[in-house]
């Protein structure tokens, strides 16, 4: 079945089964590898992307449920890697293996979009669905705070509608 998707500000067409999770359409059909497979059951958050600005688990989101909502992946969070979260993650040097970090950043992006100055409890609530097997949680927490400081208005739109 053909589906028209708005991914990172571009309209693309994929011809896949209606029950294919968005994750696999992104990874194997559109060759966008930023969102990762970790568990397939919504336990780890490595596949997190923004759907209509909200953080969702792409491994559990069937392509048929996407409709006209905008999809933002880590590749489209900013045109040049300068979203405050990306800069903060770099400054704090958060990653170890890095496999979970795209999902972490996308969850944080959804948080900052609705709450530009989150407290520790807000961060815990928003980020608790994202596992980090390497245990970089303390750095994730401080990087979210740092991003909030850096970006008075964090940009979570897609590159297209930002222009």
């Amino acid at each position: 079945m053909a589906f028209e998707l708005n991914v990172n500000g571009r309209t693309v067409s994929v011809d896949v089964p209606a029950d294919m999770p968005l994750l696999w359409a992104l990874r194997d059909v559109l060759h966008l590898h930023g969102a990762k497979y970790g568990c397939g059951i919504g336990q780890c958050g490595a596949c997190t992307v923004l759907l209509g600005g909200k953080a969702v688990r792409a491994c559990l989101t069937p392509i048929s449920a996407v409709g006209k909502q905008t999809i933002t992946t880590i590749e489209g969070l900013s045109p040049d890697g300068t979203h405050p979260l990306q800069l903060a993650w770099q400054e704090v040097d958060v990653p170890q293996c890095g496999y979970c970090q795209a999902g972490q950043i996308m969850s944080a992006a959804a948080l900052l979009a609705r709450n530009p100055k989150p407290g520790d409890k807000d961060i815990e609530a928003a980020m608790n669905g994202n596992l980090c097997r390497c245990g970089t949680y303390l750095r994730i927490r401080s990087a979210v705070h740092r991003a909030a400081e850096m970006g008075s208005a964090p940009r979570t739109q897609t590159p297209a509608n930002r222009e």
């Binding site: 966008l32 590898h33 930023g34 969102a35 993650w89 496999y99």
Partner: peptide, 16 residues
């Protein structure tokens, strides 16, 4: 980390 920018922009290449 050498790859921190690649990781935070989704460009780092893992085996998968």
């Amino acid at each position: 980390g050498t790859d921190v920018k690649a990781i935070t922009t989704g460009k780092a290449v893992f085996a998968i």
